[in-house]
Nucleic acid binder design. Structure first.
Ligand SMILES: [Mn+2]
Ligand SMILES: [Mn+2]
Ligand SMILES: [Mn+2]
Ligand SMILES: [Mn+2]
Lengths: 241, 241
DNA sequence: CGGATAATTTAGATGGCTCTAATTTTCTGT
DNA sequence: ACAGAAAATTAGAGCCATCTAAATTATCCG
């Protein structure tokens, strides 16, 4: 064979991995992330909790757990649940860092609406290189949180967790700064964004209309009737002054 | 079971595909792109050519070709080669569009060096949403080419192919504008970038030193001895004036 | 033309990730 | 303490994408 040195333009480059991090599949990364989130939410992490979160069947989870255990990313006690090893936690935090940094980048640099950034980041997080991560981070000025107010773990895997209280706990006449909004439901998020109820905004609780299931708040100069469904997605830090 | 509506933050969203384009795997996309490139380079597209380009074994290619044929993305004549169907070509162009748009975005918006943009784009191209594609395109002002000078196919799948002549064909004293540089070899690319020999640059050929295997060119105000290895990667449009 | 050689395909296997159905273990309530 | 329910695992299967070794088909050349 005359080995004509492959003339390609955008084909796959020859393998030359270098001293990169252990490359794992998107599936593995998603499981680690799910386990991390469940673990951090308290309680022991069960097979069914993972299955529900990832929308897969329980046997798929058992199967994957065994693989993760073989890779020393989780510790598994059969019938009892899993726990991330330090290596597993490190990897989970790396992906979460990617996710939140991407969310911020998408919102800030590309103007993607806040209710769409999650899904975009969900796909991009698995293919973000360290190089690009660093560039985005620098370009954004090394942000501490994503647009939902969740902390961005550092490159070293340190995450500054802070608990804020629900807007529902505020009493009339109180002022507070929004610190976090739940990124669970895109619809809720879209509505919060429409009302300007996003992290860093200052709000003023005018009155509670519990019977009617709503709260009257002032944002900027306008009053809003806030249904509880929306209010419960907002976490705040009361003004001390 | 009490179906507690899954409280997740960044887990996989429930399936609600909508009227998206037929989602195919990264592998399928890579094969289509490879076939497109080979097809456009003339001749019939053989199993071994694809295998070499994608760095996989020939039986893997045969296997995938059958799958692509079943999906009506290629036409396969056993032992004779493959050809993209219109649907297959459309998909190939879509990925190439992603790739080149991403290259441009990475270079322009994130300052990624030109010799690194290819590999980054290679991973990102498979997860770029139409939404993001549109935003990047707009932000860049709807560019016609990528940083290597290759045309970016339109959303409709139209690609403006132009052939330029090699810098090697120029005669002494001729002036020309660089229109394209080969993106084959990152090292070559890095060296070209260092000398300012990138698309849109104007060069002036001072003399050919064929025996010594180099060309003396002027870029901006400085002279460079250009080894043939570099010169052969540069394609130009001679100045008519 | 026909044999050697090269290209391609077939055969058979593997790993990753998923599923359903069946089984086993754990939990819970009386 | 134990029966029934719930949760987890095992068993068995499938699809995707890859591999090596063997068989088949095409090409090339004397
Ligand atoms: Mn990273
Ligand atoms: Mn977030
Ligand atoms: Mn697209
Ligand atoms: Mn390019």
């Amino acid at each position: 064979m005359t080995r004509h040195d492959s003339h390609y333009e955008e084909g796959t480059r020859a393998e030359r991995e270098g001293p990169e991090r252990a490359s794992v599949s998107k599936a593995v990364e998603d499981y680690l992330k799910a386990i991390y989130k469940l673990q951090r939410a308290g309680q022991v992490v069960t097979t069914s909790a993972i299955a529900e979160r990832l929308a897969v069947a329980p046997p798929s989870v058992t199967n994957m757990i065994k693989r993760l255990a073989r890779m020393n990313l989780v510790r598994h006690t059969p019938y009892r649940g899993v726990e991330l090893t330090p290596a597993g936690e490190k990897m989970a935090l790396e992906i979460i860092r990617h996710h939140r940094l991407l969310e911020r980048y998408l919102a800030e640099a590309l103007g993607v609406p806040i209710d769409q950034i999650h899904d975009e980041a969900e796909r991009l997080e698995h293919v973000l290189s360290e190089e690009l991560e660093e560039r985005m981070d620098a370009l954004l000025g090394y942000p501490a949180t994503d647009p939902h107010g969740d902390p961005i773990p550092t490159k070293e895997g340190v995450v500054a967790t802070r608990e804020y209280q629900s807007l529902l706990n505020l009493t009339p006449c109180q002022r507070a700064v929004i610190r976090r909004v739940s990124d669970e439901d895109p619809d809720v998020l879209r509505n919060l964004a429409r009302l300007g109820l996003l992290p860093e905004a200052t709000i003023h609780v005018l009155r509670l209309e519990a019977e009617e299931g709503q709260i009257v708040v002032e944002v900027g100069d306008t009053e809003h009737l806030l249904p509880l469904a929306l209010a419960s997605a907002v976490y705040v830090e009361p003004c001390t002054a």
